[in-house]
Structures are given as structure tokens and as C-alpha cells.
């Protein structure tokens, strides 16, 4: 049995840890709410851009996929795939990074042909470097609330890789924020563009529950009855296509990172909450054994005293 002093030290240490984890939980909760708000603020933009693209394609009768005129829509035979893996810079976020990496690993195994990897966040970079699969581009140190400008290098890389023919397809794997308790790792196709993929992304922006959950119903109303218009294009449909597609790609990447950010914080919040709970339980059991140790020490002393006085009385 441990001595009284060591148990007391342990209780003190656990209490300190509990304080830290509780503080981290509170910080993550605030950050989660904020990054969720940022992710949602970009939604009207994404829906508007998407609607334009939709109108563009329908009124142009341009087939959305496989039109060689617009090179971002071009489907090629897949020799090399580019995979963007979005993780966090920091750990202590529960299973957040492991889940993403597991999914990425599964994707790489099932992919036909070579896979080039680009990583966002220190954790993915470390993971792939350790497995001697050095990422073609690793991008770390983005803040909690990313600016669109900061995403530019990553966007340029994906765009270049596709247009130069270094990659025939581009995917992104990230964690989608559904609610504070529920996140889901998803793989989305970035390039070549497909309308379904974009739609899935835009709809995925809204969380299932919570403050912003009724958002989808409102925007659905707003977007009704906009199809079937005959549009004029200035300067020309092709020019607009060429400009709007990269913009959409940028939004998509930006969004994935925002979502991952919100997920990271909520995942950390949950991990820290259970850590705090565990610490409380540990303290409880330590206190019980401390009391036991103290009582047995008292008993021992009492026995010694009575034993001593009896010996003197004889």
C-alpha cells in the first residue's frame, strides 16, 4: 500500500491536470462555436456561386462532365490521384486525426495508380513522412480562423497539378462537422468538377442540430424558381466558366478547412470533457485510499500506545 504522502501528491497532481483539461474544454467550446459561425457565413456565397454555375450549364446545354472545352471539367483516364489530407496542427483532440488518417490510408490502398499526397496540418505531415511517403505539399500553421488568402498556396497547388496533368483526379479528405457531438470523416472529389459533388458540399455545410440547423429550409425557398431562364452572358460563357470554376474550387478547399477546424475543436472539447471526468473519478478513488491509509496509520499508532502502556502497567 502506498504511503499517505505519495497518495496526497497524486491527488494534487490529478487536481492540476483536471484544472487544465477543464480550461481546455472551455476554450475549445468557444472556438468551436466561432469556427462554426465562420463556416456558415460563407454559405450564402457558396450557394449563389453554385446557382450561377447551375444556370450556366443548363442554359448552355453544356454537358457538365467531359466537355473538353472547360479543362476543369475534363475527365481523364486516372493515372495519378492527388489526395489532400486535412488534419490539425495540435494533438489532444481525441480520435480526430486518427480517423482522418485511417480514411486516407484506406483510400490510398484502394486507389488504382499512384497517389500523390498533400497535407494540411502537422499531424498528417508527420504521419506520412514517418511512413516514407513524403507529401508533395505540406501546409501547416494555419490559424484557427483561416482567411481565404491563406488557402491560396494550397489552391494553386491543386489547380496546377490538375491542369499540368500531374494529377488526373483530386480528392480531399476532411472531417465534416455535423454537430458538437458528431463529426464525420468524408472524402470529396475536388477535380474534375461534378455538380453532385458541389451540391453535397454546400448542403454539408449546415450542421444537423443546434443553432444553425434550420438554415437549409430557408435557402431552398430562396433558390426555387431560378432555373429555366434564358441567360445572357458577358463577356462569353467560356470566359465566365473559366473564372467561376477556380473560384468554386477555392471555396471548396476553404470550406473543407473551416469544417475540419470546427470539428477539431469539438473533438478536443469532448476529449477534454472525458479527461476531466476521469480526473474527478481518480481523485475520488485516491481520496478513499488516502483515508484508508490514514486510518490504518492511526490504528497502528493506537495499538502501539496501548501495547506500550500495558507493558508498563505490568
Amino acid at each position: 500500500m502506498a504511503t499517505l504522502r505519495t497518495i496526497r501528491l497524486r491527488i494534487k497532481g490529478t487536481k492540476n491536470i483536471k484544472q487544465i483539461t477543464r480550461a481546455m474544454e472551455a476554450v475549445s467550446a468557444v472556438k468551436m462555436r466561432k469556427s462554426q459561425g465562420v463556416a456558415l457565413a460563407a454559405r450564402p456565397y457558396a450557394t449563389a456561386a453554385l446557382r450561377m454555375l447551375h444556370n450556366l450549364t443548363t442554359s448552355q446545354k453544356a454537358s457538365f462532365s467531359g466537355d473538353a472545352q472547360f479543362n476543369l471539367l475534363e475527365t481523364r483516364k486516372v493515372k495519378t490521384t492527388l489526395l489532400v489530407v486535412v488534419t490539425s496542427d495540435k494533438g489532444l483532440a481525441g480520435p480526430f486525426n486518427t480517423n482522418v488518417l485511417k480514411k486516407a490510408e484506406g483510400f490510398i490502398k484502394s486507389a488504382t495508380g499512384a497517389v500523390t499526397i498533400a497535407t494540411v496540418g502537422k499531424k498528417a505531415t508527420e504521419y506520412f513522412t514517418r511512413r516514407s511517403r513524403k507529401p508533395a505539399l505540406s501546409w501547416t500553421g494555419f490559424g484557427d480562423y483561416v482567411e481565404v488568402k491563406e488557402v491560396e498556396p494550397l489552391f494553386d497547388f491543386v489547380f496546377q497539378a490538375f491542369t499540368d496533368g500531374q494529377a488526373d483526379e483530386a480528392y480531399i479528405v476532411y472531417t465534416n462537422f455535423l454537430s458538437a457531438m458528431k463529426q464525420e470523416v468524408v472524402i470529396r472529389k475536388l477535380l474534375p468538377f461534378s455538380e453532385e459533388g458541389l451540391l453535397a458540399m454546400v448542403q454539408g455545410i449546415v450542421p444537423e442540430k443546434g443553432r444553425f440547423a434550420d438554415y437549409n429550409a430557408n435557402t431552398a425557398k430562396e433558390n426555387a424558381n431560378t432555373a429555366n431562364n434564358e441567360y445572357l452572358f458577358e463577356p462569353s460563357p467560356k470566359e465566365i466558366f473559366d473564372a467561376i470554376l477556380p473560384a468554386l474550387l477555392k471555396i471548396q478547399i476553404y470550406h473543407a478547412i473551416l469544417e475540419a477546424n470546427a470539428s477539431e475543436h469539438s473533438s478536443r472539447m469532448i476529449a477534454m470533457r472525458s479527461a476531466t471526468d476521469n480526473a474527478s473519478e481518480l481523485i475520488k478513488s485516491y481520496t478513499v485510499s488516502m483515508n484508508k491509509a490514514r486510518q490504518s496509520a492511526i490504528n497502528k499508532e493506537l495499538a502501539e500506545i496501548t501495547g506500550g502502556s500495558e507493558a508498563l502497567a505490568v
Binding site: N55, L56, E230, Y231, L232, F233, P235, I240, A243
Partner: peptide, 12 residues
């Protein structure tokens, strides 16, 4: 300049 009842238009 866009006035009300403009024809549908998409522009850069």
C-alpha cells in the same frame, strides 16, 4: 447599369 426587369444575365 441594371434596371428592374433586366434580361437574365450572368457576368464577370
Amino acid at each position: 447599369t441594371v434596371l428592374p426587369n433586366h434580361v437574365p444575365l450572368i457576368s464577370h
